[in-house]
């Protein structure tokens, strides 16, 4: 295992607060919420596991060998269970989760009747492929056909959130949205190109 301090990016003699802060920042960055349905979700999960372990190790070391439960660390991410009636849909969901999109797509075409779940799954496949516009259309259809389903509504809400939701490193968070048109122009003129440095 890597040195837990280098995993968190802090020095050996960092204070408890610094360790905690570094851990929080990393946990925010790799939080499963930022990688929902993302084809790279497993990589984020690995990172999350690594930093959780590193933080646990450090807190244990610092507590003088005390092996209690680490209350601070974020828990693992559990996918909520599905209640699906149609066995074909269950198989398609498994295929999507395993990343086998072609197979999932083919199976979905073989399902004759198109209900809310059909559109939802079709949207999920499009999403995984990066076809965001079709994902959005399909999720919208799914919600229209089955307005009470929380899963569909959540998927649609995530898409409508746009760029507001995800992680941004410190310094890239605010500011740009508050700029008026004029400032944007000024700034764009500075987009590498002008002047000498």
């Amino acid at each position: 295992m890597r040195d837990p301090y280098s995993v968190l990016g802090v020095s050996q003699n960092a204070s408890d607060d610094e360790v905690k802060k570094a851990y929080r920042e990393l946990a925010r960055k790799y939080h499963p919420d930022n990688y929902q349905n993302n084809p790279l979700a497993d990589l984020a999960e690995e990172k999350m596991k690594e930093i959780n372990e590193a933080y646990d190790t450090i807190t244990k070391q610092r507590a003088g060998g005390y092996t209690g439960s680490s209350s601070g660390s974020y828990g693992g991410y559990q996918r909520s269970g599905y209640a699906s009636g149609n066995p074909a849909y269950v198989r398609i969901r498994n295929l999507i989760n395993a990343g086998d999109l072609n197979q999932a797509e083919q199976m979905l075409y073989e399902v004759g009747q198109k209900d809310g779940e059909w559109y939802f799954l079709s949207g999920s496949i499009a999403y995984r492929k990066g076809w965001m516009d079709e994902a959005m259309q399909n999720y919208t259809r799914a919600v229209q056909m089955d307005p009470n389903n929380m899963e569909y509504r959540q998927a649609l809400a995530v898409m409508q959130r746009g760029s507001m939701g995800g992680y941004r490193p410190a310094g890239y968070t605010a500011g740009l949205d508050t700029m008026d048109c004029c400032t944007t122009m000024l700034c764009l003129n500075c987009l590498c190109g002008g002047g000498h440095c």
């Binding site: 930022n34 990688y35 965001m132 959005m136 898409m159 409508q160 746009g162 760029s163 995800g166 941004r168």
Partner: peptide, 20 residues
Amino acid sequence: EALRLTMDYSLELMGAALQL
């Protein structure tokens, strides 16, 4: 509006990938 949303989404996913 719709085009911006879908383009922003791609940017979002680029950011998420970059962090990994």
